[in-house]
């Protein structure tokens, strides 16, 4: 697939009176991808999103949408739409009128058909006459999606789209959101602090930290080949032995010595934590260093005090200097 960027952020910076929120950030979104902007709270990801939407103005840098600099444009002049974290549905309007808001503002024809088609797409057609206050969190989210997608934006921005939902609902909505993105073919830029959400949803991830880009890549690239310690630690868990890192799920335990050719450390189990589908076993090796191993429930036979071998394949090691 030849590169076909829809959005290019070039060297964008933004400083607020209290702190520097975004520092020389550059990133590119390919047409049709679901891109996650991931990072801890305060890393500048929401500010980036708000600059693309037009709610904040960059101090410097360019934001190109289809090759045109949109930085000087007002939010209502950009063909970009936002699904807000709180959904921001208009409480005085029905779901239908919420979805019709943008079409009416543009003076479009056949508003009714377009609104109903959009509501069908998110399975809310039956609730077109409801007010936002009469709907569940999941329904509000779908209404907000319909309200944005009905305008056929070049780019859909989603600010923590799943954070206001019940944890039980989140899994299901994740799949629905991804399926919806594939169906409409619109480029999604999603802001999230949840690494699992980013890994499971995104085609590509940009990881931000303290206003700077740490790494860009597919979920596999970012998780399996982190470019630095921050990335390695932010996505998943890590054991560190000086400059060598190994993930707990690659860390094995055994009572007998493992076959030769692997990296092995003798140790003693100090803690065992039950996590439902697995155990997290902590073992101390020489020098007071603690390593964590993720052991499937069916293979667990380790108790605090047990002498064990802690080992892993050399190929699972990450070499990242501090």
């Amino acid at each position: 697939m030849p590169p076909d960027p829809i959005l290019q952020i070039r060297q964008v910076s933004k400083t607020f009176p209290s702190h520097k929120a975004v520092d020389q950030v550059s990133m590119t979104l390919e047409r049709g991808e679901l891109h996650a902007l991931l990072g801890p709270s305060g890393c500048g990801k929401t500010t980036c999103l708000r600059m693309v939407a037009g709610f904040e103005t960059p101090d410097s840098g360019e934001i190109l949408l289809n090759g045109v600099d949109i930085a000087p444009l007002k939010p209502y002049q950009r063909n970009v739409s936002t699904v807000f974290q709180s959904y921001a549905l208009f409480p005085h309007l029905t779901v239908f009128d919420n979805v019709a808001f943008g079409l009416r503002q543009r003076g479009e024809k056949a508003v009714r058909d377009k609104v109903m088609a959009s509501l069908e797409m998110v399975q809310l057609a039956a609730k077109a006459d409801r007010r936002p206050a009469q709907m569940s969190g999941g329904e509000k989210q779908r209404a907000a999606l319909a309200r944005s997608l009905v305008l056929a934006p070049d780019l859909l921005l989603l600010d923590e789209p799943l954070s206001a939902l019940d944890p039980n609902l989140r899994q299901q909505v994740r799949h629905e959101l991804k399926a919806l993105q594939r169906r409409v073919g619109i480029t999604f830029l999603m802001v999230t602090h949840d690494q699992e959400e980013a890994l499971s949803l995104a085609d590509r991830i940009t990881l931000l930290n303290q206003g700077r880009v740490e790494q860009v890549g597919t979920p596999q690239e970012i998780y399996l080949a982190p470019a630095n310690r921050f990335t390695a630690n932010f996505l998943g868990e890590m054991n560190w032995l000086d400059d060598v890192g190994v993930r707990p799920e690659s860390t094995r335990l055994s009572h007998q010595a493992p076959e030769p050719g692997v990296r092995v450390h003798p140790g003693q189990v100090t803690q065992s934590t039950f996590l439902g589908d697995c155990y997290h076993i902590q073992a101390e090796i020489g020098g007071g260093r603690q390593l964590m191993a993720r052991v499937p429930r069916s293979q667990n036979g380790y108790h605090p005090g047990d002498r064990v071998h802690v080992w892993w394949q050399a190929a699972d090691e990450l070499h990242l200097p501090q």
Partner: peptide, 14 residues
């Protein structure tokens, strides 16, 4: 809620 006014602008309303 200020987000409502941002939503209005976002949906094309000056």
């Amino acid at each position: 809620d200020p987000a409502l006014l941002e939503a209005a602008a976002d949906l094309g309303a000056p």
